[in-house]
Structures are given as C-alpha cells and as structure tokens.
C-alpha cells in the first residue's frame, strides 16, 4: 500500500512539473524576449506584469471551436497533438532532479529517454500529413528532413557522458560527474544542445513552422485546444532538453549543499539552459533547411565523433 501511495505521489509530482514548468518557460519567454526587443510584453492579465497571460491563453484556447478540415484525415488529425505531447510527459518520469528524487530510476534511463523523445516528432509528422494542406505537407517534409540532420549528432553526443560515467542510468551519470567534465565534455555539450534545439524545431531551426513561408507549417490547420497542445509540447520539449543537458553535461544536482539543495541546483541549471534557448530565439536568425543539413553533417557529426574518440581514449586510459 505504501508502494502504491509513493508511486501516486511521484506521478502527481511528475504531472505537476509537466503542467507548471512549461508554462513558466513560456511566460519567461514572453517577458524576456519582450525586454530583449525593447518591448514590455504582456502587462494586463493577472495584474502584476501580466503573470497570468498563459493561463488566460489556456482558458481562451479551451473555449475555441475545434475545426477539422473536411479534406483532412480526421482520426490522425485529432490524435496528432496527443502523440506530440504525451512523450515529453513520459520522459519526465525518468529524469532525476535530486539524489533519489526521480519519478522512476531506470537502469537504461538515457536510452529510454532518447527513444521516447523520438516519438514526439511523430506527432508533428502526423499533423503535417493528415492536414491535407500544402503548407502542412511542406512543413512535415521539412520535419522529416530535419530529423535526419539532428538525430545522429544528438545520439552520438548523448553517448559521450554515458561512456565517461560507464552507466546508462541518468542518476549514475550525475553521480559520476565531476567539474572538469565541463571542459573535456564541452564539444559534446554544444552538439547535444544544438541538435536538441533542432529536434524541438526551436529557432534558429524552426524552418518547419517558418511563419513567413509556411504560415505555421504542420500546425496550420489546427485550432483551439489541439493547437494549444502542440504549443505545450514545444515548451515541455524545452524543459526536457534543458533537463537532459543539465543531467548529462552540467552535473544535475551537484553543487554546494547538494544533499539538501540538490533539487534547487537542478532547477536552477534547467532554468539557465531554458533561458539560453529563449535567448537564441531572439539573437539568431532562422537557418534555411539546407544550411541546417550542412551544419549537421559538416560540423555537428564530426565534432560528436571527435568527442566520442576523446571520451573513449580518456576512459580506456583511466582503465
């Protein structure tokens, strides 16, 4: 019975994190991006500096009519937002934010996390195809091409900390982490983060949804709550990417007073990485699809392979 209660508590915490953290990132993006562009951003909803803007958005989305185009493949079209969103919830269950503070410790946590994250892209592809819209289809094709570009460097870079820690357990990787990883795992960190941005289709890699070319790419035909779920999936994706970067490369909960304040260290590092994601959206112009391919094959993959060679050499050297 105690097991079941504890399981329920863990699930509630994971669900809470899934529902709250993406909104925090979204609101931060609203305000930070605004100030970076010499605007003030939302100021009215909730009174104090528009803190409730995303809640107001959510209430509005929930009341909007759900339009399914007559030409669309209805069942796939309706299911796609769920397929895009739920994987990020599932991933969160395996990410540790403190010693023992994890939804469920998995022996092959890293492998599990990467596998489940891959499913999220499927939702976007489903949306692109099922919409029966030319913009959506083109966006979907770009997603598929983008998938090829980032998946290889993403996985190769993720293997590197696992090799250094000699475990696939995410908690194990954090425990094995030492500050000097920041230096010799730096190439892997950069590749992982950039490839992760491409996976999330975040600027500067948002050509699948490029608004000036494709309206909103695969999401063009979506309205109301289903549209909101895609947005939620994007911001949950930022949280997951930031959390994985933290766990794999930035030492997770490690820091002064890690035993008591470990969770705070984790959340702080996740917040900083998420802020960097927002910053890049403001600072870097969108790449073209072929530029991403070139970046991936000519820069990310070679750097990731170099990192693998370096990590294996250091690992064998230390025996």
């Amino acid at each position: 019975m105690a097991d079941a209660l504890e399981l329920a508590l863990r699930l509630v915490l994971v669900l809470g994190a899934f529902l709250v953290l993406p909104l925090l990132v979204g609101q931060t993006e609203h305000k930070v991006m605004a100030h970076m562009q010499s605007r003030v951003g939302p100021m009215y909803a909730g009174g104090f500096h528009g803190w409730a803007q995303l809640i107001a958005d959510g209430v509005k989305f929930a009341q909007k009519e759900d339009v399914v185009p007559a030409a669309a493949d209805g069942a796939v079209f309706r299911l796609a937002p769920a397929v895009a969103m739920v994987p990020y919830l599932v991933v969160l269950v395996a990410i540790p934010i403190g010693p023992g503070l994890v939804g469920q410790e998995l022996d092959i946590g890293l492998f599990f996390v990467l596998a489940v994250m891959g499913v999220g892209v499927l939702g976007t592809l489903m949306a692109g195809w099922a919409s029966a819209n030319k913009y959506s289809l083109l966006g979907g094709m770009r997603v598929a091409a983008q998938l090829m570009a980032y998946e290889l460097p993403f996985v190769l870079a993720a293997v590197s900390p696992a090799m250094a820690a000699r475990t696939l357990s995410l908690s194990g990787i954090v425990e094995a982490w030492e500050p000097w990883w920041l230096i010799w795992q730096l190439p892997g960190l950069v590749v992982f983060f950039v490839a992760g941005l491409a996976e999330l289709q975040r600027p500067p890699f948002d050509m699948p949804v490029a608004d000036s070319e494709l309206v909103f790419g695969p999401y063009t035909e979506y309205t109301g709550l289903r549209f909101a779920l895609f947005l939620l999936a994007e911001y949950a994706g930022i949280v997951v990417l930031a959390a994985l970067t933290t766990v794999l490369f930035l030492g997770g909960w490690q820091g002064p007073f890690a035993d008591q304040l470990g969770w705070l260290w984790s959340l702080t590092k996740i917040g900083v990485v998420a802020l960097l994601v927002v910053w890049l959206r403001v600072a870097v112009p969108r790449l073209r699809a072929d530029q991403l391919q070139r970046l991936a094959w000519q820069a990310l993959v070679p750097i990731a392979l170099f990192q693998l060679a370096l990590t294996s050499a250091v690992g064998v050297w230390n025996g």
Binding site: L7, L11, L15, L92, A94, G103, L106
Partner: peptide, 17 residues
C-alpha cells in the same frame, strides 16, 4: 517492476489528454 511507473505515467498522459 521498475517499468510499472512508466506504464502508469503513460496511462496518466492518456487520461490527461
């Protein structure tokens, strides 16, 4: 047993949606 919570969170996600 370590995958019971994983199954559970998938169910939670389905219920949520």
């Amino acid at each position: 047993g370590s995958y019971v919570p994983v199954l559970a969170i998938i169910v939670v996600g389905a219920v949520l949606v």
